[in-house]
């Protein structure tokens, strides 16, 4: 059995978990076994709908205390559930919560772990999973040596596969250990698209000169429905919040489209974004190293190019 942990944020199932579900379903098919989802907490989604991403069965432990992340608690419950259903592989989304829980679960199951997996394992001869290493500058093929395996699949690398089925939901009734941490304050990022989930990202660097100039970037992001990111010096100087800092020492993302505006393309920056499917670079310096990593480039002044691009997108959207 492949068991997929379905994570939630604010009682909603995230896209990264649906991707993990589809990954788990494909893996189960490859291994010739069943696949089930495990949901902890109270979620607003209709759980039978997880069938549309590949689940045959959904195990649900409905309890409000599980809505916020408590790694000690969650990993214990997930590991127990995995043992109960004889899971041979447990799959997580390699998102913030999945990354935190998966290693603890692997310890509890005495399972080998690969986080940041980028594709289905090769099971012809053993169980070899490819993952990104060196912040995206290379891939490593990792053999998992243990009977039970734990995999956290990178966001936006496998995609959500549409299935035409509905899953059966089984409510679990197991006692919940006491929480190890107490949440005292929650600050949601309101209305913004979380960077790691976004398929379109618009990012700005020092070339934008100052925080007062971010309007043109935000307009572009809005026209596309994109999330916003920035280079490290931009967040270091508080022009933009820390959670927008992408790169080797920030967060690593792999959207379908990354538009870099006024960013030189230093190696540490590229490390966080080079897995993006398509990269557009807007920079006034034709020698900027970022152009070497780009699919499309515009050599020009961001203050002219970006508003023009926004207009062109709005025009395209209004005629589409």
């Amino acid at each position: 059995m492949v068991l997929v942990y379905i994570d939630q944020a604010d009682q909603q199932i995230k896209k990264s978990s649906l991707e993990a579900m589809s990954y788990g379903a494909a893996l189960a098919k490859q291994l010739g076994c069943d696949v089930a989802a495990l949901v902890l907490g109270t979620v607003q989604d209709n759980l039978a709908e997880l069938g549309k991403s590949g689940a045959q069965k959904v195990y649900h432990l409905k309890n409000e205390t599980l809505n916020s992340l408590d790694v000690k608690l969650h990993s214990t419950l997930i590991a127990n559930a995995a043992k109960n259903v004889n899971a041979t592989v447990v799959v997580f989304a390699n998102n913030i919560n999945g990354k935190a829980i998966a290693p603890a679960v692997s310890v509890k199951l005495e399972a080998g772990l690969v986080t940041g997996a980028s594709s289905l394992p090769n099971t012809e001869n053993g169980f070899v999973v490819t993952k990104t290493v060196f912040s995206g500058k290379a891939f490593a093929s990792i053999q998992i040596e243990t009977p039970i395996k734990v995999i956290a699949i990178n966001q936006n690398s496998f995609g959500v596969v549409a299935y035409d089925t509905s899953a059966t939901v089984e409510e679990l009734n197991i006692p919940i250990p006491t929480a190890s941490i107490k949440i005292t304050k929650l600050e949601k990022v309101e209305g913004e698209i979380p960077l790691t989930e976004a398929s379109l990202v618009v990012s700005g660097g020092r070339g934008l000169k100052g925080p007062e100039n971010w309007g043109i970037l935000l307009d572009l992001a809005k026209s596309l429905g994109a999330a916003t990111a920035c280079s490290r010096p931009v967040s270091d100087t508080d022009w933009r919040p820390h959670h927008e800092h992408v790169g080797q020492t920030g967060i690593q993302i792999a959207p379908n489209l990354y538009i870099a505006i006024g960013i030189s393309g230093a190696i540490q920056h590229l490390a966080g974004v080079n897995r993006s499917k398509t990269i557009v670079v807007i920079n006034k310096d034709p020698e900027a190293p970022f152009f070497k990593a780009a699919d499309y480039g515009v050599v020009g002044d961001a203050f002219e190019v970006v508003p023009a691009l926004t207009s062109a997108i709005l025009k395209m959207k209004s005629t589409a």
Binding site: T130, V133, A140, S141, V298, L309
Partner: peptide, 29 residues
Amino acid sequence: ATTSIKKFDIPVAKSGVKLVDPANMDELV
């Protein structure tokens, strides 16, 4: 150890940038 590294690969480099005229953003779109 529960895992071992079998091999490494370097991602294939981008095939080269396509430059778009800054005065023609319709083309980029």
